[in-house]
């Protein structure tokens, strides 16, 4: 875990900017889904889950009732499993009404190659048959390798391929911020 003030890292989103981005996305979701009718927010672990919960809470503030929210672990559907040691599985938790016929909004922190979302679409397929699937991300850093795009973007962040983007959230890291840092040799940053 890079330190926030470590060599070469710079903040590209402040806590306030993150808060504003999530508020804006919440509004956009409500607008695009006609008041959040039949939506389910599914966060992709780890940080996507907390972002999804924040979005659901915001929507609740605007609409009076929080949106159904859950988590979707995509590990077993990834196509890059054999590039790293086996990872522990994270919780998949679907709201009681399920996903059939719903508008599922997948939530993740960073959109990069698109492979995680591809895996998420497969994992979602195992859970049921949503009416529509949308994608919300806090940061879109480009370099897509699949024909995938986000419906809701907190910030478009132009990056070099080998640079690293690190999202830190209060729930997991004790603070809100997005950092951009130099890549370690031979590594590709998320």
């Amino acid at each position: 875990m890079p330190r926030r003030d470590g060599e070469g890292w710079k903040a590209v989103l402040t806590p306030e900017e993150i808060r504003r981005a999530l508020t804006r996305i919440s509004h956009e979701i409500l607008e695009r889904t006609h008041g959040g009718e039949g939506i389910v927010l599914l966060g992709i672990p780890t940080r996507g889950v907390y972002l999804a919960r924040r979005l659901a809470a915001r929507i609740g503030e605007f609409e009076g009732a929080p949106a159904p929210v859950g988590s979707l672990d995509v590990t077993l559907h990834r196509d890059d499993l054999r590039l790293r040691p086996a990872r522990a599985l994270q919780r998949t938790q679907v709201p009681p009404d399920g996903v059939d016929g719903k508008t599922v909004v997948l939530v993740d922190d960073v959109l990069f190659s698109g492979r995680t979302i591809r895996a998420a679409l497969d994992a979602l397929n195992d859970l049921g048959r949503p009416r529509a699937v949308q994608l919300a991300v806090l940061v879109d850093r480009g370099h897509r390798e699949l024909p995938i795009r986000a419906d809701y973007v907190g910030k478009n962040l132009p990056t070099a391929y080998r640079e690293k983007v690190r999202v830190r959230l209060a729930e997991t890291d004790g603070e809100d911020c997005v950092l951009l840092g130099p890549a370690l040799p031979g590594q590709v940053g998320k």
Binding site: L76, L89, Q90, R91, T92, D126
Partner: peptide, 23 residues
């Protein structure tokens, strides 16, 4: 414990209708 936890998550997937994973 890692094996038991992983099995726990897989047991949840077992409860769903589609039971084949591409892993």
């Amino acid at each position: 414990i890692g094996i038991l936890d992983t099995a726990e998550e897989l047991a949840r997937a077992e409860g769903r209708p589609i039971r084949k994973l591409p892993t």
